[in-house]
């Protein structure tokens, strides 16, 4: 093995675990690794040693070096746009296939479902939500959030509804709030809709048969370098219906080849309907 540094460490991590961070934006993943070393007061050599021996340690390490920030109706402008310009168009379809890639603790999944329900099409949506991290996936599935930390959810909810549908359902239609037990809980009729599945965008092929009408992948690919982004977008592209939408974070954009295969309207990247025939 070459001299041990963060880069070679990530190569070793790939060998000894199911995780591959080699295509991550270098400066930021190295910094998060450095923070782990400082917090645990260990050297990189020691980290590698433990990595080789202790799978549970590796799972926890992955929790620390991956980022799991999400919120109910995060970036309200995005949701106003989606409700008015995308979801209202989708409701005429027989089924609406949605994939949240990198769903974290699920707030975005429920934000989207609430809007579909407001449009009366909850029974038509087929929602898959995936994440690399099984811990956050479980939290998403439980649909339980700390009241203390998230007590502003009812305000974000009301602010958004004032903009899109002031006569819509109240917050309490979708969430039970139990202050004594510090809980905001998603009601079962909503919570049971999405199918959650652990999936690694980097390492695995896409395990779904259906093609999607909407793919959310917000603030996930910002941690990937350019080549890896291209790889992942290619996987999305192949799994999208013509005219389907890809929703990225508010400061993400498509680069390179795939820029030409999507048109951007507002905050949504739409797969173009141009067909390219390839002869072998």
């Amino acid at each position: 093995m070459e001299k041990l540094n963060f880069k070679t460490y990530l190569e070793e991590l790939k060998k000894y675990s199911r995780y591959n961070f080699c295509g991550y934006s270098e400066n930021s993943i190295y910094r998060r690794l450095e923070k782990v070393l400082t917090d645990k007061r260990i050297s990189l050599e020691e980290l590698l040693d433990i990595t080789k021996k202790d799978q549970k340690f590796v799972d926890n390490l992955v929790d620390e070096i991956t980022v799991n920030t999400t919120d109910l109706f995060r970036d309200p402008d995005t949701w106003v746009y989606l409700y008015n310009h995308l979801y209202k168009k989708l409701i005429s379809k027989d089924t609406i296939n949605v994939w949240h890639a990198g769903c974290s603790t699920g707030q975005e999944v429920y934000s989207s479902l609430i809007l579909f329900n407001e449009l009366g099409v909850l029974d038509k949506v087929n929602v898959i939500a995936t994440d690399l991290n099984s811990k956050v996936l479980k939290a998403a599935q439980n649909g339980e959030y700390s009241y203390k930390i998230n007590k502003l959810y009812s305000k974000s909810y009301k602010d958004l509804f004032d903009r899109i549908n002031p006569d819509g359902n109240d917050f309490s239609h979708y969430f039970d709030v139990d202050i004594d037990n510090d809980l905001i809980k998603v009601k079962d009729f909503l919570r049971k809709v999405p199918k959650y599945k652990r999936h690694d965008l980097v390492e695995e092929d896409i395990p779904f048969y259906q093609k999607f009408d909407v793919i959310f992948c917000r603030n996930v690919m910002i941690y990937f370098d350019g080549d890896l982004q291209l790889n992942v977008v290619r996987k999305f592209f192949d799994k999208m219906n013509g005219g389907a939408s890809l929703i990225l974070g508010s400061h993400e954009s498509l680069h390179g080849f795939f820029k030409t295969r999507f048109t951007k309207k507002g905050l949504v990247y739409t797969k173009t309907n141009t067909f390219h025939y390839k002869y072998k």
């Binding site: 930021s28 920030t69 941690y223 400061h251």
Partner: peptide
């Protein structure tokens, strides 16, 4: 290049 992050 720039990269962005939403970590804490």
């Amino acid at each position: 290049t720039f990269s962005l992050s939403t970590e804490g």
